[in-house]
């Protein structure tokens, strides 16, 4: 299998503070990968660096064989929080913007999701609740047909019924070679759709393991395994 994401010797500092150190990570084409770690561990930073939104890191990040930021961006659908949009902008305008900017944006997929997520397109961005905004973000992010999806804690404020439907849409629509990197600190809900987990701890990649391997080798659930690492009673390896 080929690697869709290759990160080599990545170091990133911000305000004289080291955020990520010596990160090396390969993600194979087609994998759904859970990026786990405490708040502040660097999950969002790593996603922003992969997406090319955060800059100034040393080392290299290659996505689908490309190094240049504009090329990488065309392969990556990142669940950004729509901060670049004017708060008075109406949702239907934002959707039109996505249609115009991303040739791979599928209005049909979006409409299907918007249907079950009950997103009201007539509202302005500033009128959305936290959960509603998250639904819009995930809807927009998943409606592109691309190689890499970066979902940064996509389910925080979303009710469990909608979560389940979103997860089903992911399974239904993900093309066989697309990579999904999804961060979360509630692991149990996404555990069944993960091929691998990557755990960030102490500013670097602590481990990368197959989800089924964790279950068969340690007879542990993903959540349990993750917690054992953070609690420091890791008896593995």
């Amino acid at each position: 299998m080929t690697n869709t994401i290759e990160i080599k010797n990545l170091n990133y500092r911000k305000n004289y503070r080291s955020i990520l150190e010596d990160v090396n990570l390969n993600i194979e084409s087609g994998k759904t990968v859970g990026l786990l770690g405490e708040n502040g561990a660097g999950k969002t930073t790593l996603m922003r660096l992969i997406a090319g939104v955060a800059k100034g890191a040393s080392g290299s990040i290659t996505v689908a064989g490309k190094n240049g930021v504009p090329e990488k961006k065309s392969f990556i659908s990142f669940s950004e929080q729509l901060d670049g949009f004017n708060p008075s902008m109406r949702i239907d305008k934002i959707i039109r913007f996505y249609e115009d900017v991303y040739p791979d944006f599928s209005t049909e997929k979006y409409n299907q999701m918007a249907g079950f997520l009950q997103i009201d397109e007539g509202l302005r961005l500033s009128a959305l609740s936290k959960g509603m905004k998250e639904k819009l973000v995930i809807g927009l992010t998943l409606s592109r047909d691309t190689k890499v999806y970066l979902l940064d804690e996509p389910f925080g404020g979303i009710d469990s019924m909608s979560r389940k439907k979103i997860i089903q849409s992911i399974i239904k629509w993900k093309s066989d070679d697309a990579v999904i990197l999804v961060s979360d600190h509630y692991v149990s809900e996404i555990a069944s759709i993960l091929d691998e987990v990557v755990i960030i701890k102490d500013r670097t990649i602590y481990t990368q393991k197959s989800a089924e391997e964790i279950r068969s080798k340690y007879a542990e659930g993903i959540e349990q395994y993750y917690e054992s690492i953070y609690e420091g009673n890791d008896t593995n390896d």
Binding site: K31, Q168, I171, K172, S192, I193, D195, E212
Partner: peptide, 17 residues
Amino acid sequence: VRQLAVDLTVNVNTVQR
């Protein structure tokens, strides 16, 4: 395969295995 994956809410690769 994909329908099974959706019905069971699991990864397509897992169903394939």
